[in-house]
Design a protein around this nucleic acid. Structure first.
Length: 357
DNA sequence: AATACGGGGGG
DNA sequence: CCCCCAGTATT
């Protein structure tokens, strides 16, 4: 029913895209591998954040074969700070499948791509259209917002059927030529002009003359989304344990939050200095000095960590659970989540204050 | 249909 | 603070 309206956006949008699109490294040389890597990195992540990660990743792992055989810690290190770490593990699983089933080349098939771990409807459509020129839609948050505004739709875009309907609407207007460019033009408009949070730049929009949301003065009110659940708060006590110039780290379990990454040893709850000393002694370590550190907060999508920390100088002892690492190894090898950044800083500050003596 | 899963940028 | 982001997998 909106097809006549939506059909009219195709040519203006493509023209605008060819004159105004940002220059991005994965657009320069859109091999299937580079498009794949970029699309996975861009899941729930802004372009500016991705740029340095993308260049470093494809330089270290230039093809699917090298990704397939990479060490997991190397993968996590390349992804360190980018978040949603299962993305890179799923990419490696997919790379192994591609080596086995498709002779090391990504299949030029929407259905086959969507079967691969980490590739859902959006990413399969993006790779299909951008890397292979196949006529499939790539409907991300940008596109849901742009289409909602153009059609003045107040439907809740968190609703699965609504999302399916918009995918269908976009499918109907996909051009036969330059389908990848068209999909990107919709996203590009959403990312640079049809901005979220009630801040669309209708003044500079190439589609304002045909946008129903603009015509009715409700573009800023759209799209409609249901609110998400509140995040829970957790108290943590983080240990910055130093032995000589080495730092004590532990590895997180294989599943769940920050799976498989290294971290500073930490205990649930806010421990007093005395409780902290007891815990560390129970780990088989002897404490020479202890000093409370500043509090820190880290906010995940669904959890908030309220952290207290202690700097401890300890003697090395028989202990299976702690790994002692040099500053160099910490920097070059260990993948640490951003949540511990505040306390890692205390470790480096400690090293600096010691070299002065 | 709801929840788990990171982190950062901008109002 | 709150919102949202070139989403996917699991329950």
């Amino acid at each position: 029913m909106n097809k006549p309206l939506l059909n009219t956006i195709v040519n203006p949008l493509l023209s605008w895209y060819y004159s105004s699109a940002r220059v991005l490294p994965w657009r320069d040389n859109p091999t299937p591998y580079r498009v794949w890597v970029s699309e996975i990195m861009l899941q729930q992540t802004r372009v500016d954040t991705v740029l340095p990660y993308f260049e470093r990743f494809v330089a270290a792992l230039p093809d699917i074969a090298s990704l397939a055989q990479a060490d997991e810690q190397q993968l996590l290190k390349l992804w360190e700070g980018l978040g949603y770490y299962s993305r890179v593990k799923n990419m490696q699983k997919a790379a192994l499948t591609v080596m086995k089933l498709y002779n090391g080349k990504l299949p030029a098939s929407f259905e086959a791509l969507k079967e691969l771990p980490g590739i859902g409807a959006y990413s399969a459509g993006a790779i299909s259209s951008i890397a292979f020129g196949l006529r499939f839609p790539a409907v991300d948050g940008n596109v849901l917002r742009v289409i909602s505004r153009i059609t003045a739709s107040a439907d809740d875009i968190t609703d699965i059927p609504v999302k399916k309907r918009i995918e269908q609407q976009v499918t109907e207007i996909l051009p036969t030529e330059a389908v990848g460019d068209f999909n990107q033009s919709l996203m590009e408009l959403g990312a640079t002009v049809c901005l979220p949070n009630g801040a669309p730049r209708c003044d500079i929009c190439p589609l304002k003359h045909l946008c129903l949301g603009f015509e009715h003065g409700i573009a800023a009110e759209l799209p409609v989304k249901t609110v998400k659940a509140a995040k829970r708060a957790e108290a943590k006590t983080v240990l910055v344990m130093v032995c000589g110039d080495k730092l004590g780290v532990t590895k997180r379990k294989k599943t769940g939050l920050l799976a498989g990454m290294w971290e500073l040893p930490n205990i649930d709850g806010a421990l007093s200095m005395e409780e902290c000393i007891t815990v560390v002694k129970d780990m088989g370590l002897s404490v020479n000095e202890i000093q409370p550190l500043t509090e820190a907060k880290h906010i995940f999508t669904h959890i908030m960590w309220n952290m207290m920390g202690y700097l401890l100088q300890v003697n090395e002892a028989r202990n299976d659970s702690i790994t002692w690492v040099s500053p160099k190894d910490l920097k070059e090898r260990m993948a640490l989540p951003t949540a511990f950044k505040a306390y890692i800083r205390h470790y480096y500050a400690y090293l600096n204050s010691n070299t002065g003596r």
